[in-house]
């Protein structure tokens, strides 16, 4: 089995804010991390490798300093890491990014066919969840998104549990396949000391436009149909109403419930007959 992970280095977004006065990004000193969902995808691949054997390859598109994320990822027990880095890749939206990653996966597959592509369900800096399905579509692989559990891999089919609004769906697909990982997929392990030492000496391969036969019209800003036209700070949440419920709790509670219905926070089901 050959497992391929698509990994992204992202700013730790809980710390990126917009300055409401100057309307600019404040990102001084925001650390870079491995996208958390990608870390779960990697963890799962390592576990699969431990159970079924095989090989784990990581690819990452990003600036040269994303090498650090790849070295870190190697310390969890991956076999190969490749950084896709070229100034012409910069500014790619999800369509163009999926294209570049697909070209890389196809190149890797020429010598070492990929059986399972694992991506995080989304990157926390963009939250689009579009790159994974975009890659599956281009590779012609079935896609299983929002995976919370891999049940089995048997006779060329993989069975997983997926997270959806209404509940969990058990679905299976024929290999080769692309999965996107939710955090529930597994608990992250710590890197072992031997793997950490191996990773610290590891130098990820770097593929630029010369190494990757990409069509210039499909990548970077020119290959991206979407563009940002404006950014602004979200309207700040206005302070709510604070009521004193120490003297007459029943009346105050009743008033708040009244407001909850008035503002449609809760809606009475007009069709329901009888109690719930």
């Amino acid at each position: 089995m050959h497992y391929l992970i698509c990994l992204k280095q992202v700013p730790d977004t809980s710390e990126v804010r917009i300055d409401p006065e100057t309307n600019t990004l404040m990102r001084e000193g925001v650390p870079s991390i491995i996208n958390p969902y990608d870390a779960h995808a990697l963890e799962e691949a390592i576990r699969l490798k431990e159970s079924f054997g095989g090989k784990v390859t990581i690819i990452c598109m990003g600036p040269p300093q994303a090498k650090e994320a790849l070295k870190k990822a190697m310390s969890f027990g991956a076999d190969r890491a490749i950084l896709l880095s070229d100034r012409s890749f910069a500014g790619s939206d999800s369509l163009a990014t999926a294209y570049i990653l697909t070209v890389a996966i196809q190149k890797i597959s020429e010598t070492d066919p990929v059986d399972i592509v694992l991506c995080g369900k989304e990157a926390i800096d963009g939250d689009t969840a579009q790159t994974g399905p975009g890659i599956a579509q281009r590779l012609g692989f079935p896609q299983l998104t929002y995976v919370i559990k891999i049940r089995e891999i048997d006779q060329g089919w993989i069975t997983v549990e997926r997270k959806t609004e209404g509940g969990r769906e058990v679905a299976k697909a024929k290999l080769p396949v692309l999965l996107t990982a939710e955090k529930e997929l597994n608990d992250l392990s710590y890197a072992s000391l031997p793997n950490m030492m191996k990773a610290s000496a590891y130098d990820p391969e770097v593929w630029d436009i010369k190494a990757l036969p990409c069509d210039p019209s499909q990548m970077g800003l020119k290959g991206s149909p979407t563009s940002v036209s404006r950014i602004f700070a979200p309207s700040a949440k206005t302070g709510g109403e604070i009521l004193d419920g120490t003297k007459d709790p029943t009346i105050v509670a009743g008033n708040v419930v009244e407001k909850m219905f008035q503002q449609n926070m809760i809606m009475v089901d007009p069709l329901a007959k009888g109690g719930k």
Binding site: P11, V16, D127, I231
Partner: peptide, 9 residues
């Protein structure tokens, strides 16, 4: 975008 800290059009 950015976890809801920024809005983008």
């Amino acid at each position: 975008a950015f976890g809801g800290n920024i809005m983008a059009t």
